[in-house]
């Protein structure tokens, strides 16, 4: 354990309110490479650690536009260019009919973009991560709230950072081996 480099320092809190407060303090203190873990989404937490833009909406927009244009172009190409066929005197480019499938492909592409975009931006799946080395971290999916300051932060100092975390009055502090 002694030889293993340190990935970060982790503090454990009892309530979401404590965690958000602590995250705010940490950010104000000048730490930037930090993260917080909670068993359910807390809107204010991402703000507190200075994370504002999720990037997901843009991915979804691109997916939706691709699905919309691609869906219509596919039908247009099939029925106007590749294999035009007269059905009951309707025009080759039967746009009212094509709206339906265009709509469905738009939703399909946008929806899949939302899911896979979110997973990719989050770097999931990721079977191994150093924070799992902390035994207490199993409670991050139950009823405990964690704050971590990564050792890669420029302000990180093993002793000083630990003192700072202690000033936040956490339930416990652990070193995370990487």
């Amino acid at each position: 354990m002694k030889k293993v480099p340190i990935y970060g320092l982790m503090a454990e809190f009892d309530s979401p309110a404590d965690l958000v407060k602590a995250a705010h303090r940490t950010y104000e203190e000048g730490y930037r490479k930090i993260d917080a873990y909670s068993p359910f989404p807390i809107e204010e937490l991402a703000e507190a650690i200075g994370f504002h833009r999720s990037g997901v909406p843009l991915v979804v927009l691109v997916g939706g536009i691709l699905g919309c244009v691609g869906g219509y172009m596919m039908q247009y190409w099939i029925h106007v260019i590749n294999y035009p066929i007269n059905v009951g005197g309707r025009p080759f480019n039967s746009w009212p009919s094509f709206v339906v499938v265009t709509f469905e492909t738009t939703i399909l592409f946008a929806g899949l973009a939302a899911v896979f975009g979110m997973l990719a931006l989050n770097g999931l799946p990721m079977p191994y991560h150093p924070v799992f080395n902390v035994p207490r971290f199993a409670f991050a999916t139950k009823d405990r709230f964690f704050l971590i300051i990564f050792s890669s932060d420029v302000k990180y100092d093993r002793a000083a950072t630990r003192r700072f975390l202690e000033s936040l009055e956490p339930r416990s502090i652990s070193e995370v081996p990487s």
């Binding site: 873990y37 909670s38 068993p39 989404p41 999720s54 990037g55 997901v56 989050n122 799946p125 971290f137």
Partner: peptide
Amino acid sequence: AMGWRGSARHWKRYETA
């Protein structure tokens, strides 16, 4: 679970998605 760890960044993207 694909390594879900409840990070605040992940939650934010997750909620948006």
